[in-house]
Design a binder for these strands. Structure first.
Lengths: 209, 209
DNA sequence: AATAACTTGTGAAAAATATCACAACAATTC
DNA sequence: GAATTGTTGTGATATTTTTCACAAGTTATT
């Protein structure tokens, strides 16, 4: 069965391998990846085994081979276009984020309802939300990011799905439900901070006692 | 044992209850929360039971009571100050993010090495990174956000930890390892998008076959 | 070419997590 | 006030995920 956190770990391994490669490593061991990503070596190997990624006994994994296997598994052997709905603080940050390009991720266009945000001729065009459907269909976009306020999220989700979007990263602070025809990852910034608060507070409490 | 995803779910329940409250719900059932957050009703009850949150048989949970129990458990009965290191795209977006205040989360200050970013007299002061240690110690800050480039992340982590930070949300695309004295949550935007790409691609592949 | 050193790949075991199913109970109806 | 209905709280069960442990294999050394 395909397991979400297993795929997340695969991405982390890939990042770790990239960093090791930049340090001129030619081979890596499951041990190295375990250290770099905070899991056990057995888990690294189990994960690889699950996706049919293999190395050499005693020789570990050849960095370049491993990278290409990881990229292939993750579908990173081709460019992927995303669109963003909502050009607020988060949306703008994602538009400008430098880290995507080298991971063959491209933000193709942004959409908003606020005319002040429109910029049809920018590097990444910002267009009226009404044009989103047309854009998605015309360009065959399959991937979207939702960065609108909570009250608009569900509606934007429906718009995206009906236009043919198959996968969404959602930053709106509301848990969008995924369906069989559309994968959704929810990132809730408040929730993430609350999580940290909880563990820090409970550590304090334990110590105080 | 305390379980990270259990606490994350608790935050989601809290958000769901807040939304139901705004719809004038007076009581909620585990069923409602299950629907709103995409888990089973049994899980909601198990989670509550774990934290000692209880309702009434047949009567469900009284919204206001439940909220205060959730907030108390999550340590949201008081304000929490965070600092941010790295005032780039992500850092700036977080500084301006509107959603924190009503969750009693406050960004107290930002730090960067670029003098162009300094703004010591803004609503949220942006100060030189060299002053971070002093600021943390002086104000008793326990919580931090890392939004610097990958190559600087480890170093900023050490700075924060040595100054007394106990919990960190990390946006740098490198997996920072948590230690017994400092909780860390890593959010890697590329990884999140890759995860979606993977599931969309593999769904495509399955359909094509 | 035999031995030693070391790492993978993976079944088996353990641990963690989620679901089931139902007794216990509270509100409502008859 | 007895019967009915509906919901919680939770042991027991099932499933998922992780770790263990070691045979199988590869390279290096003597």
């Amino acid at each position: 069965m395909l397991n979400r956190s297993r795929v997340l770990r695969l991405s982390r391994y890939k990042n770790a391998v990239l960093r090791l490669k930049s340090l001129n490593f030619v081979r890596v061991f499951s041990d190295n990846l375990a250290d770099a990503t905070g899991v056990t070596a057995a888990q690294v190997r189990k994960d690889f085994s699950f996706f049919g990624i293999s190395g050499n006994r005693r020789g570990g994994y050849v960095v370049d081979e491993l990278l290409s296997q990881l990229n292939k598994t993750l579908g990173k052997d081709q460019f992927h276009d995303f669109i963003i709905a909502g050009i607020g603080n988060i949306g703008k940050a994602l538009l400008r984020y430098q880290g995507f390009e080298k991971s063959s991720i491209r933000i193709a266009a942004g959409f908003d309802i606020d005319p002040m945000k429109y910029n049809p001729n920018g590097t990444v065009p910002i267009l009226p939300l009404e044009q989103m459907n047309e854009y998605i269909v015309k360009n065959g976009i399959k991937l979207g990011i939702i960065a609108v306020p909570d009250y608009a999220a569900q509606q934007v989700l429906e718009l995206m799905k009906s236009a043919g979007i198959k996968g969404i990263l959602n930053f709106a602070p509301i848990c969008l439900r995924e369906t069989s025809d559309c994968v959704i990852n929810n990132i809730n910034l408040v929730t993430e901070l609350e999580n940290i608060i909880y563990f820090v507070e409970s550590a304090e409490a334990k110590k105080g006692k």
